[in-house]
Design a protein around this nucleic acid. Structure first.
Lengths: 346, 346
DNA sequence: CTGAAAGCGCTTACAG
DNA sequence: CTGAAAGCGCTTACAG
């Protein structure tokens, strides 16, 4: 490895002290213009780059934020979700000249607690935690530790947390209403997400709210799923075997919608003619299936960007009051609900 | 934020110097057992976590590796690819107790050069660079700078680079042979990837090699694509419009295969009955389409894991000779080639 | 054997 | 106004 250039090297070349060179590079007024430009030139010529460790130690600030991805939710939410989140976090971090440290390995054993270590070691000045399980006490501990943390998702039981999320209840009600009102469906099924994640609970709640309001609760069926493609398939298989009567399905995500649609089609039920299907998330897969899935788009990247901005706010001002931001979820109309013929536009 | 616990705090509580406490915690022989355990206990009680900045400055080692994702290739290779890579890098970094810094923002302007800054600032001890464009001089510069770097992909023109990749030529020849030998196809199309990435050039080469060996080069057609779903569709539209005669298509990736299949099906060509289709990558989408896409599986996570191991080798021993590792690509048989009926197993 | 200084690279608060 | 010390937290090499 080539020799490392330090501030001292730059200073020596110009004939000033390292302290002066530091001030010169930061544009401090007390350094004369001529010295300032001489130092700048020397730094450029030598290819000086400030040591992050030296800075971090002196400034008591790492210049990095951490993105924590609990293993459980990695499997639950899928690849596309995390790339959206990562992109959002990076965008905001970039704007603040900060590095992004990623841990995809926070699991049960190590827990998010492993990340408390990272933050207490001051590798990162704060952390973004993506949707962890309701029962995950690590999140609570992390929040209570007083370290700067922003959560992505909904945490009704964590009043002190800073979080960014969407209104899953309202959005699922909208999805359900779409099948009810626009497509005149009256016998709906809801396949839930994992009910140990708030998102699963809330989406179920939204479905219930909508079918109640429409007075079709009696004919509605709820089946528990786990967000995996196969669990959507299993739910449909079960209902078909039972001879259940339904003309629409609200899946808690697109992956399950895909699995479910396949079973329906293989069983001779046409989608959307016989059964209207709507998904949730729009993280990538929904556009790509046949028929393409009508879904509720969750603005994951934007949530992450906003969460990271909030995190920087807390890092700069630790006393900020907890806050909750909610972003809109939008209905994306495709083919599986019946709005458009399947061969058409994609 | 709570008060930060330093080594000095631990030492004071036990009544030794910080130096002694440091040695005690590292299990140094010269500290007596009784002191050692007293220090350990004090550290536990106080919740001491070593400062990464202090360590980094003293040890001249950041304890972190960087994963660089040139913007161009982010669009080109897709989300799933990067999550596989990220998982592989994390696994290896974890085993070495190192952090993973991710940059998804290395683009044309900032270039991978932006990352030379990161490494010269010693935020990271080395970097993994995922498949950059052939023309990307930044990669070359980074390699030549002497900083520890491992590339994922193929870089025939960078003899001094450490890299991990797959044999794209051989794998594409295998894919092509599958349509030729197993399915008896004789009039093949190849839709290429982006030809400014080595991968695109190599896969085209593999196709050519196979059709030549089979003596069907005359009937073969090559169309340039860009790895995007739409470009696969465009390629098929063009051929259909020209009234081209073909019974099999080797796509340079699964996304294009999906786009292409749709156009074929919409035009009344049955896949696989009339046209055998094979893709490449198997990063997620191929399993999910209808029909599911037969493809060549690239072991992205394993490549990344291996690359990161190699990186740690270089970080620990800067003089190591450049090396090239190649991982096997495997044929994953699904429906689009004609091996299995579409309704069946998935 | 053990105590404590020195120094990694930086920047700010202090002394002159 | 300007020079240079002090100190962030750590660990190793040195002095005793």
């Amino acid at each position: 490895m080539r020799k490392v250039v330090t501030l001292k090297d730059v200073a020596q070349r110009v004939g000033v002290t390292a302290a002066a060179a530091s001030m010169a590079l930061s544009g401090n007024e007390r350094i004369s213009d001529s010295t300032r430009s001489a130092v700048q030139r020397a730094a450029d010529e030598l290819g000086y780059v400030p040591s992050s460790a030296g800075r971090a130690l002196r400034n008591q600030r790492a210049g990095a934020v951490a993105l924590i991805v609990p293993n459980s939710s990695q499997h639950v939410f899928g690849h596309n979700y995390f790339m959206h989140v990562l992109t959002g976090v990076s965008t905001a971090a970039n704007a603040h000249d900060a590095q992004v440290i990623v841990s995809t390995n926070a699991d049960q054993e190590n827990g998010v607690a492993a990340y408390e270590r990272v933050m207490r070691s001051r590798s990162a000045d704060g952390a973004i935690v993506t949707s962890a399980a309701i029962e995950d006490r690590n999140v609570e501990r992390l929040v209570e530790s007083g370290l700067p943390v922003v959560l992505i998702g909904n945490f009704p039981y964590l009043a002190d947390a800073v979080s960014v999320g969407v209104d899953d209840v309202g959005a699922t009600a909208t999805a359900t209403d779409h099948l009810l009102q626009v497509h005149g469906r009256t016998a709906l099924v809801h396949v839930t997400g994992t009910l140990d994640h708030q998102t699963g609970v809330d989406r179920r709640e939204g479905f219930l709210r909508a079918v109640r309001a429409a007075g079709v609760e009696e004919r509605s069926i709820i089946v528990e799923g786990d967000l995996g493609e196969e669990s959507g398939a299993a739910a449909m298989r079960q209902l078909l075997a039972e001879g259940a009567d339904f003309d629409g399905v609200v899946f808690a995500n697109d992956d399950m919608a895909l699995g479910g649609m396949r079973v329906l089609v293989d069983a001779g039920r046409r989608v959307p003619e016989d059964v209207s299907v709507i998904g949730f998330d729009d993280f990538g897969i929904a556009r790509v299936t046949t028929p393409a899935i009508t879904t509720m788009r969750v603005p994951a990247e934007e949530m992450a960007r906003l969460a990271t901005e909030q995190l920087f706010d807390r890092i700069e001002d630790t006393d900020r009051a907890p806050a909750r931001r909610e972003l809109p979820v939008t209905l994306v109309v495709r083919e599986s609900c019946g709005c458009r013929p399947a061969a058409d536009e994609r």
